[in-house]
Amino acid sequence: MTEKLTDIANLHKEYTRSGLRRSDLTTEPMDLFEKWLKQARTAEIPDATAMNVSTVDKNGQPYQRLVLLKYFDQNEMVFFTNLNSRKATHLQNNPRISLHFSWNSLERQILVLGQVKPLSFFKVMKYFHSRPRESQIGAWVSQQSSRIPTRNVLENKFLELKQKFKNGYIPLPSFWGGYRVKVEAMEFWQGRAYRLHDRFLYQRTIDSWQLDRLAP
């Protein structure tokens, strides 16, 4: 065990792709986010919109999971989920949330801090019916985060509902919805050589953003 830990400790990589200077920054953090996201997609990073969503339970225990970003504007980011899921239960008690984007091949990370509010029924319904039919059925099948005895339970339920909805409209489940994250802070991280990384933090003020460079 000691030898394996030593092997990991000796792993090392220099970050040399590029830097992040104040002159590269935008007035609005979402404009820089959009630019970096486009570059991540151009670089064909798999699931470039995947973000690590962190929530905290009633005992203060943090949890993380990957969720796909589905929409963003100058103030908010949006994702969808089962409203009975672990993350949704946490957010009912504590609406504060952390999102993290990691684009390793570009040596970049973005941290987002904010608070969530539920999306309206109409926005949820519009997005739900834009999804592939199989995904709509999948939303009905999975009682997310609940315990199940075997995978066959899911697969059999999927086949049952696929037959039920074979020729008709798939209604929106009452337990499926989405959240909009009101962004309060965003940190942009660009890897640099010798671990002297570039970090810039945007923090929302009353009518603008405070921008600071952080030590790596």
Rank of each mutant, 00 (worst) to 15 (best):
Y127D: 12
H129V: 01
R131D: 01
R131V: 01
G138A: 08
E155P: 03
N94W: 03
S120T: 11
S130L: 13
F101V: 01
S120F: 06
L154V: 11
L154I: 12
K123Y: 02
L99I: 03
S130R: 12
T150N: 12
W140N: 07
E107A: 08
N94L: 05
Q136R: 05
Y127V: 04
E134T: 15
T89S: 15
V141W: 11
K157H: 13
P118N: 05
Q136Y: 00
E155S: 15
S146A: 15
K157V: 09
S135R: 01
R133V: 10
N152F: 05
H100R: 01
E107Y: 10
R108M: 03
A88M: 11
N156P: 01
T89H: 15
S142I: 13
E134M: 15
S135F: 04
R86I: 00
H90R: 04
L113Q: 08
M125D: 08
V153I: 06
L154D: 04
I97D: 14
E134P: 03
P95Q: 00
S102Q: 09
S135Y: 04
N152I: 01
L91W: 04
P118A: 08
N84F: 09
N104R: 11
K87Y: 09
F101Q: 04
Q143Y: 06
S85H: 08
R151A: 10
